[in-house]
Deep mutational scan, measured.
Amino acid sequence: TRVETATETAWISLVTALHLVLGLSAVLGLLLLRWQFPAHYRRLRHALW
């Protein structure tokens, strides 16, 4: 049971790290898009909202 718990903890930390990385890359990508294509971003936002 001790090994299982350790594996579970490792998986949880791995998944958390993955989610953090994905979230950060998504935010960075959005910022980059907004910085590179302001007109396109505004049009996209206008279409979405």
Rank of each mutant, 00 (worst) to 15 (best):
L14M: 12
A10G: 10
T1Y: 14
V27L: 11
T7Y: 12
L20Q: 05
G29Q: 08
A17N: 01
Y41C: 14
R34I: 01
L18A: 02
L24H: 05
A47D: 10
A26N: 02
P38A: 15
Q36A: 15
L22K: 01
A47W: 11
L31S: 11
T1R: 10
S13L: 13
G29L: 14
R34D: 07
L14A: 02
L24V: 10
R42K: 14
G29W: 08
I12S: 06
G29M: 12
G29D: 08
L32S: 08
I12F: 04
R45M: 15
E8A: 01
H40S: 08
S25C: 14
R43Y: 03
L32T: 00
R43L: 10
R45W: 01
V3N: 03
S13Y: 09
T5Q: 01
A39Q: 15
R45P: 04
V27Q: 00
L28E: 02
T16C: 09
R42C: 10
H19M: 01
L31A: 14
L28H: 02
H19L: 02
A10S: 11
V3G: 04
A39L: 13
Y41I: 14
T7I: 11
W49G: 02
E4Y: 13
A10K: 08
L44R: 08
T7P: 12
L32E: 04
V21W: 00
L18M: 05
T9S: 10
Q36F: 04
A6I: 00
L44M: 09
L48T: 09
Y41E: 08
H46R: 08
L48F: 08
R42P: 01
R42S: 09
H46Y: 00
L20Y: 02
A26C: 12
Y41P: 06
T1M: 14
L18T: 04
H40N: 07
L48Y: 14
S13W: 14
L24Y: 01
S13C: 14
V3E: 03
A47N: 11
F37A: 09
R43V: 08
W11H: 07
H46F: 06
L20K: 01
R42D: 15
V27H: 04
T7Q: 12
E4K: 11
L24S: 01
L33F: 01
I12R: 04
W11F: 11
P38I: 12
V15A: 03
L30Q: 05
L24W: 00
E4G: 09
L48A: 01
V21C: 12
A47F: 11
R43G: 09
H46V: 10
A26R: 02
A17T: 07
H40P: 15
P38K: 14
I12N: 04
L44D: 02
V3C: 05
A26G: 09
A39V: 15
W35S: 15
T5P: 04
L31F: 11
T7A: 13
L14V: 06
L20A: 08
T16H: 05
R2C: 10
L20T: 04
L14T: 01
R2W: 11
P38Y: 11
P38M: 15
S13A: 14
V3F: 06
P38G: 12
L32K: 00
L48G: 01
L22T: 12
T16I: 13
I12T: 09
E8L: 04
A26T: 10
H40M: 14
G29S: 13
L48E: 13
L14F: 02
I12C: 04
A6V: 01
L33S: 00
G29Y: 05
L24G: 02
